[in-house]
């Protein structure tokens, strides 16, 4: 069974990849690629449902065992079930569902964004307590320069700081960003190749 799984995975991967590289020579590959990708998108939709049931199962289990924080788990399951069935019965366009979205989901995510700002500030303050080295000092100094160089200050722009900040962003930071992204792209390429050759099998292989 495992051999069949690996075979299907490798053949599917090669077919999708060939669609990108060799569609000029073999137009049928584009069609094969489209069919496979459409299938993958449908499976992703089904996986979302499975994921939701996994979430319910994990949290009901916590409530049943009375684990630490199970009150939040109960709240999550109740809210999820109510929203799920209301969404099916009323449809997502209904006013009540819009209230749930605009009055609960979006403000909650916005609140998390607010907390994130404080968390980042706190992390920056604690950085030098955690690790005192040249890179940390450069990191903090750059952050402060970019912040003050791009912020709207009550007394107007600081001339030299603004220019310096733009120079740091457009020359040094941009160079660094490209270097990091090239490294990430090369890592993604070799990881993808390992999966394609069956060396890594995240789909149930050994």
């Amino acid at each position: 069974m495992r051999v069949i799984t690996v075979f299907i995975a490798i053949i599917s991967g090669l077919a999708v990849l060939s669609g990108y590289f060799l569609s000029g020579l073999f137009p049928v590959l584009t069609e094969v690629q489209t069919h496979l990708l459409n299938g993958a998108i449908i499976l992703t939709g089904i996986a979302a449902l499975v994921g939701i049931f996994n979430l319910i199962s994990v949290h009901t289990d916590k409530v049943r065992r009375g684990e630490k924080g199970s009150v939040y788990s109960a709240l999550l399951v109740i809210s999820l079930v109510i929203t799920f069935f209301l969404g099916i019965i009323l449809r997502p366009e209904h006013d009540a569902m819009q209230v749930v979205m605009n009055g609960i989901v979006i403000p909650t995510e916005a609140a998390l964004m607010g907390i994130l700002t404080i968390s980042l500030l706190y992390a920056a303050i604690r950085l030098l307590r955690r690790r005192v080295d040249m890179m940390s000092i450069i990191f903090l100094l750059t952050a402060v320069i970019i912040l003050f160089g791009s912020a709207t200050l009550p007394f107007g722009e600081i001339p030299l700081l603004g220019t310096f900040s733009r120079w740091v962003t457009q020359v040094w930071a941009l160079g660094g960003v490209r270097g990091i992204l090239i490294g990430v792209a090369l890592g993604s390429l070799t990881t993808g190749l390992r999966v394609l050759f069956g060396a890594d099998r995240p789909y149930g292989g050994n």
């Binding site: 990091i180 090239i182 490294g183 090369l186 890592g187 390429l189 070799t190 990881t191 390992r194 050759f197």
Partner: peptide, 28 residues
Amino acid sequence: GEELFLAGAYLGAGASHLASLTVQDILR
């Protein structure tokens, strides 16, 4: 950066992970 992809090689996940490191270096 690419250190994200090195964990397998450092944790002893096999020859293919070590080969990935060398290929990344050559491509770099």
